[in-house]
C-alpha cells in the first residue's frame, strides 16, 4: 500500500490532569474507510478535534500530505482538505440549505466567487438528495436532513479526508440505510473516510479497517472480522454476548 496521507505520531491531548488522548499513532491511506470505535469517553471526538485544530495537541506530531499540520487552526484544516461533521449538527440556522453548502464551497472549497460557490453547492445538494430543500431555512430540516446537510457542506469543501462523527446517531433504520449508501458513494469518489460510529452494523458493512480507542489509547487495529474477536476489544467495548452474536452473524452472512 502507498504511503499514508495522514499520519499521527504519538499524539497526546490532556485537559489538566485528564489524559483524553495518549500516545496515539496511526495512518490513513488514500481512499480507505476507517472506523474509529470505542466506549463513550474514550477520546474519539477529542482525537478528531485535535486533527482538525479545534484543540491543540499537548504532544506529538500530525502530518497531512507530508506537511506538519500539528496545531493548525480549524479554518486551515478546512482549506487543506480535512473536513469533518459534528456529532451535534452545526448548521447556519437562518441561512437557506443552499447557502449553508455554499459557505463550505466558498471558504473551504476555494471557489473564487459566490456564483461559482452556489453552483458547486447545487451539485452537492443533488448528490446528497437535498435539492428539493435548497431554499428552505436550515433550521427547518429534520435531524436526518440536517445530518445530510452536514455531509453536503463538508463535501462542498472538496475534502481529501472526511471525518464523520456519529452521522447515524439518532436516525431510524431506513434513514441509516440511506446514509450508508451515501457514505459508500462518497468513498467511491476517492475521499478517505474516518468514521466514528457506535453501530457495529455500520462498522462491519463499511469499514476496511477498524481502530479501537479505550481510555484515550489505541488498544487494537485491524480488519473488522479480527477486531470483533479480539479479547481486548470484547472486554473494553463489545461485551461477550454481543461479540458472540456478531461473530455468528458474520459467519452466517
Amino acid at each position: 500500500m502507498s504511503a499514508p496521507i495522514l499520519v499521527l505520531e504519538n499524539v497526546n491531548k490532556h485537559f489538566g490532569g485528564i489524559h483524553a488522548v495518549t500516545d496515539v499513532s496511526m495512518g490513513l491511506h488514500e481512499g480507505e474507510i476507517v472506523a474509529l470505535i470505542g466506549p463513550n469517553g474514550a477520546g474519539k471526538t477529542t482525537l478528531v478535534n485535535v486533527i482538525t485544530g479545534v484543540h491543540s495537541a499537548s504532544g506529538g506530531c500530525i502530518r497531512f500530505l507530508g506537511v506538519d499540520v500539528t496545531n493548525q487552526r480549524p479554518f486551515q484544516a478546512a482549506r487543506r482538505g480535512l473536513a469533518r461533521t459534528f456529532q451535534i449538527v452545526q448548521p447556519f440556522p437562518r441561512m437557506t440549505v443552499l447557502e449553508n453548502v455554499a459557505a463550505g464551497a466558498l471558504f473551504g472549497g476555494a471557489h473564487a466567487n459566490l456564483r461559482d460557490a452556489m453552483a458547486a453547492a447545487r451539485e452537492q445538494l443533488e448528490f446528497t438528495g437535498l435539492t428539493g430543500f435548497a431554499d428552505r431555512a436550515a433550521s427547518a430540516l429534520t435531524l436526518a436532513g440536517r445530518k445530510r446537510l452536514e455531509l453536503a457542506k463538508s463535501l462542498a469543501m472538496k475534502p481529501k479526508i472526511l471525518m464523520l462523527d456519529e452521522v447515524n446517531a439518532g436516525l431510524n433504520s431506513s434513514e441509516i440505510d440511506g446514509a450508508l449508501t451515501l457514505i459508500r458513494r462518497i468513498a467511491e469518489r476517492g475521499i478517505t473516510i474516518l468514521i466514528i460510529e457506535h453501530l457495529m452494523k455500520v462498522v462491519l458493512s463499511l469499514a476496511h479497517r477498524v481502530l479501537v480507542l479505550h481510555h484515550g489509547q489505541l488498544i487494537a487495529e485491524g480488519d473488522p472480522s479480527k477486531i470483533v474477536s479480539d479479547p481486548k476489544v470484547i472486554e473494553a467495548y463489545l461485551g461477550e454476548k454481543f461479540a458472540r452474536r456478531l461473530k455468528e452473524a458474520s459467519s452466517h452472512g
Binding site: 482538525t52 479545534v54 487552526r73 480549524p74 479554518f75 478546512a78 482549506r79 469533518r84 459534528f86 452545526q90 448548521p91 447556519f92 459557505a103 463550505g104 471558504f107 473551504g108 472549497g109 457542506k153 469543501m157
Partner: peptide
C-alpha cells in the same frame, strides 16, 4: 464554530 470549520 461552524464558520471556522468551513474555512472562514
Amino acid at each position: 464554530d461552524a464558520a471556522d470549520m468551513v474555512g472562514v
